[in-house]
Simulated assay, not measured.
Amino acid sequence: MISSGYTVTKKKKTDYTQMLVPIAIILILGSIFIALFFLAPIQFLLYKPSGEWFFEPPKNAYYAFIGGILLVAAMLIGTAIVIYKDKMTKGMKGFITVGYLLSVLIFVLSLNQYHYANQSGIVINRFLSFEDEKYKWADITYAEEQAIVKNGMMSSGTLTLTFSNDKSYTFLLNENVRKAKIAMYYELEKQGIEVKRTQ
Rank of each mutant, 00 (worst) to 15 (best):
S110W: 05
V98P: 05
T97H: 05
L101I: 11
I83L: 15
L102G: 11
A61D: 11
A80S: 13
Y62L: 04
L71H: 13
D86P: 10
M88N: 02
T97I: 00
S103R: 01
A73T: 02
K90L: 14
I69M: 03
T79K: 11
Y100M: 15
V108G: 00
I83D: 06
K93W: 06
G78W: 04
T79P: 08
N60R: 13
F95Y: 14
G91E: 09
V108A: 10
I77D: 01
M75H: 14
G68A: 15
L70E: 04
L111N: 05
M88V: 03
V82N: 07
F107L: 04
L71F: 03
D86I: 08
I66V: 14
G68Y: 00
G78V: 07
L111P: 12
Y114R: 08
A64D: 06
I77R: 08
F95S: 12
I81E: 01
Y84M: 06
G78M: 12
G68N: 01
L111F: 12
L111W: 05
I66G: 12
K90P: 02
A64L: 10
M92I: 15
K87N: 14
V98D: 13
S110V: 12
F95C: 09
Y114N: 01
I66L: 02
Y62R: 03
L111E: 02
V104D: 05
G94D: 03
T79C: 06
A73C: 12
G91I: 09
I66C: 07
I83P: 04
Y100Q: 10
V108N: 05
Y100R: 12
I66S: 04
G67P: 01
L71D: 03
V104S: 14
M75K: 05
A80I: 09
G67V: 05
V72I: 15
V98R: 11
K90Q: 08
K90Y: 07
N112K: 13
L71C: 14
Y63T: 11
I83H: 12
A80N: 09
Y100W: 09
S110G: 08
S110F: 02
G91L: 11
K85R: 10
A73Y: 08
I77Q: 09
G68V: 03
A74Q: 07
Y63K: 07
V104E: 01
I106S: 05
S110Q: 07
F107W: 04
G78I: 14
I66P: 11
V82T: 11
G68C: 00
Q113V: 01
F65I: 04
I106K: 01
L76E: 13
L101A: 15
F107Y: 07
Y100N: 03
V104R: 06
V82Y: 04
V82H: 11
L101T: 07
V72T: 14
M88L: 15
M75D: 06
I106M: 03
